[in-house]
Simulated assay, not measured.
Amino acid sequence: MSTRTLIAPGRLARPGGKAAYRIVLGLVLLLFTLVFLGPLYWLASSGLKDAQEVIQTPPTLVPGSFTPGNYTRAWEVMDLATLLLNTLYYAFGALAFQLVLDVAAAYSLSKLRPVLGKAVLGMMLATLMIPATVLVVPQYLTVLDVPIVERNLLNSPWAIWLPSVTNAFNIFLLKRFFDSIPGELLHAASIDGAGPLRTLWSIVLPISRPILGVVSIFAVVGVWKDFLWPMLTLPDPTKQTLNVGIYSLSNGVPVNILIAALTIASLPTLVVFLLFQRNIMSGLTAGGLKG
């Protein structure tokens, strides 16, 4: 079976065809590389400049005043160690709740087939059409005075964890993957005496590692990059996340130190993506086709 390509093999075989193809491909790749990596380079290089060089016009591509001590100073002045630990605590707490509750919801919708399951899934997906900013006020009023228990959750990790638990997109991803698991496999487990929970724990979860990895990354990055909600619900400086803490401490800090702090704050998520990019792509495509 011949492989379909953008350019016909006959044109590539013409004199100069392969050379022209490689030149165009190289230029396109170079353009996209500059578009995506340019802002990251500017961020990292500006953290190595002094305050005067950062704001000068036109900007310099290569730092003329190479001062790597800006990163050490940013770590100390902005108290990034505390902010980083706070963010990790909130992120992995939200991850734990999402893995437990979202997996249970997706498994029940996919394999247990409850009454009105399709309607429930449809209503979940409909919430993705609602802008997040519309929900800020009702969520804040709920956190300010939780119904029934009448508790104020401000300055507590529950203010971050509870709104992130029911993630409709993650539930949809998990359900699509669970749908691709052969029913015969689960039926064989039930014949051996395994109940729904045992089947989920012993059979479904071990073969669902790709999609669980994707959901885990989405959960951690979702908390890591959030700004508005932590700023509203965590006014205590000792309990703030990385983004909110840097914003709160930015007044009076030189711009080069601030940029160095922002560079440090962006490094963990970039490292996670570079290490697990294959897992992310394989997890997103898993479950797209059955068989």
Rank of each mutant, 00 (worst) to 15 (best):
T82M: 03
L83H: 00
L83I: 01
L84G: 05
L84Q: 02
L85S: 07
N86G: 01
T87A: 08
L88Y: 05
Y89G: 07
Y89N: 03
Y89Q: 10
A91Y: 06
A91E: 05
A91P: 04
L95V: 12
L95Q: 15
A96R: 04
Q98W: 07
L99M: 09
V100P: 09
A104P: 15
A106M: 08
L109Q: 04
S110G: 10
S110I: 00
V115T: 14
L116Q: 09
L116N: 03
A119I: 03
V120W: 05
L121P: 01
L121H: 11
L121G: 02
G122F: 06
A126R: 05
L128E: 12
M129C: 10
M129A: 11
P131R: 14
P131V: 02
A132H: 09
A132I: 12
A132D: 06
V134N: 00
V137L: 10
Q139S: 11
Q139P: 06
Y140H: 00
L141R: 15
L141E: 13
T142C: 13
L144E: 14
D145L: 15
D145E: 13
V146M: 07
V149D: 08
E150N: 08
E150F: 11
S156E: 04
P157E: 07
P157F: 06
W158M: 10
A159N: 11
I160G: 11
W161T: 05
W161D: 02
L162G: 04
V165H: 12
V165P: 05
T166I: 14
N167Q: 04
N170H: 07
N170D: 12
I171N: 02
F172N: 11
F172P: 05
F172L: 01
F172A: 06
K175A: 10
F177S: 00
F177P: 11
F177A: 14
F178K: 13
F178Q: 07
S180G: 15
S180A: 11
S180C: 09
P182A: 10
L185D: 14
A188G: 06
D192H: 01
D192Y: 03
D192N: 07
G195A: 07
G195T: 04
L197C: 11
T199E: 10
T199C: 04
L200F: 01
S202G: 15
S202D: 14
S202T: 04
P206G: 09
P206M: 06
I207C: 05
R209F: 14
R209Q: 14
P210G: 08
I211V: 15
L212D: 00
L212F: 12
V214S: 06
V215G: 01
I217G: 12
F218R: 08
F218N: 07
A219H: 02
V221M: 13
G222N: 06
G222S: 15
V223E: 01
V223F: 10
W224T: 02
